[in-house]
Computed example of a mutant assay.
Amino acid sequence: MTLDKPAASWEDRVTVFTGRISRPITGSYITLWQRVPGAWVLRGSARTTAGGVYRFHYVSSVPTTSAFRTMIGVKAETALAISDYQLSNIQDRKIVLNTPAPWYATLTGASVTGRMVPAEPGKELALQSYLGRGRWQLLSIATMDTAGRFRLRVPDDVPATRTVRVLTRGVTQPLMEYSGLATIVVKAHLNPKVYAVSAAMVPHTYRAGCPVRPSSLRLIQLNYWGFDRKVHRGELVVRDAAVQKMISVWTSTFAAKFPIRQMRRVDRFGGSDIKSMAADNTSAFNCRRVTGNPYALSPHSYGWAIDINTVENPYLAANGVWYPSNGLAYRNRSVSRPGMLYASSTASKALVAQGYLWGGYWRKPDYQHFQPK
């Protein structure tokens, strides 16, 4: 009987063994044997088909180069025929991780990348983080491309140092493939970016006749700490000359982890200061009249003034009305709660150091408001 040399294969993948017997008896009982130190071990059985042909499908859980042979029957002493042995090369199936960066800034798209060999296009992979005591947490799932490459996102909205690994999904435990370990470090970072402003970017907060044109404004995108103790991305539209002052202020505020509810340009609220305040929005530029006083132009029209956490820091308007209406519970400043501003708050001190004054000192207090002297 003959045994064909099998093609090179991979651990956890099928290795195919084929051969035939010289007397083409259909239905002959054939067994497959593997040589291990000190013995031959039975690995499978099959029956011959037309022409005396037989075929085996064998899966090895480990990479190895081993000798295999076949025989008619199950005992070498009484076998009607035994084939010569053939060497089978079962290669190491791997998930190889690329070396991660030394660290990643929050909200910059931290991820684990690598390649699986051999490639299994469309196969799902999972990223896990080690929690200690043998416990792992699922972080993300992705599929590999036609070349076996993959990218798995790492949560980067909180600073953390994680030990991670990648493994195959959709297979039983013995067939899972695991990568080596990698360390991913995410650090809290303000990561400010400054952009020019066009009229199309401020369709509701700018209009002809405003004291500052869009060309003199800048959009700052930066990170801030939310009330959920996670880092979020925000945006402020300010006067060009105020950019460095704002970056300095928010660098201090971010380092202190002062919580911000949200930070969006007022155009997201149709230019409405009332809606922006009700949404507890921190914002700067808005060419408008003073809320509660239609005869005065707001300092926000110049791109210098800023309002912070408008619900936690309400405003008593000239007409005697407190804004926003959902911030009335915060008029009592003797009970300190997250997001409230005081003279001792990091944001307050940072803005004062940049030449701003705080509306909290006014006869009609505006606890949310800061503007240059």
Rank of each mutant, 00 (worst) to 15 (best):
Q371I: 15
A199G: 08
M277V: 05
V243L: 09
R165Q: 13
L357D: 06
V59S: 00
I274L: 15
Q91V: 00
T106A: 04
R23M: 06
K275W: 03
G114W: 07
S60W: 06
G226A: 12
V311E: 05
K123P: 01
P102M: 10
V53M: 12
R233M: 06
R333C: 02
M176S: 12
V185W: 01
A296Y: 01
L328E: 03
P118W: 10
I306R: 03
R55T: 10
Y224K: 09
A196H: 11
P102D: 12
L3T: 03
W250Q: 04
D280Y: 03
Q371F: 15
W136A: 06
S248D: 15
M116K: 12
L139A: 13
N313P: 06
R162Q: 12
S9C: 04
R153G: 05
A343D: 14
Y85K: 03
W136S: 09
A76L: 11
A119T: 13
D307L: 00
Y367C: 08
H232G: 01
I25A: 09
W40L: 02
E177D: 14
A296P: 02
A305P: 02
S111E: 13
K5I: 10
L316N: 02
H189D: 15
G52S: 07
W136Y: 13
L217P: 03
T113F: 04
G303Q: 09
W136R: 10
V36S: 08
R93E: 09
I306T: 05
G360V: 06
W358D: 04
Q368E: 15
H232P: 00
L328S: 02
V185L: 05
R93I: 01
D12Q: 14
R337D: 04
S272H: 08
G339N: 02
I72L: 10
K123E: 11
V117T: 14
L80W: 11
A317M: 07
L107E: 06
E235L: 00
M71G: 04
D273P: 01
S61E: 11
A110Y: 00
F150T: 09
I72P: 00
R153Q: 13
W362N: 03
D307Y: 06
G44N: 02
W10A: 02
S348P: 02
Q128R: 10
G51L: 13
A7F: 08
R363K: 10
Q173W: 14
E312N: 10
V41Y: 14
D4M: 07
E11P: 01
R207C: 02
V62Y: 15
H189V: 10
P192Q: 12
F258K: 04
Y195N: 11
N309V: 12
I141G: 08
T291Q: 11
Y315N: 08
L341T: 03
I308C: 04
E235A: 14
L125C: 08
T49D: 10
I90G: 00
G320L: 02
L181N: 11
A329W: 07
L175Q: 15
P102T: 09
H57S: 09
W322P: 01
K245T: 12
M263Y: 08
D92R: 15
R47S: 12
T49Y: 11
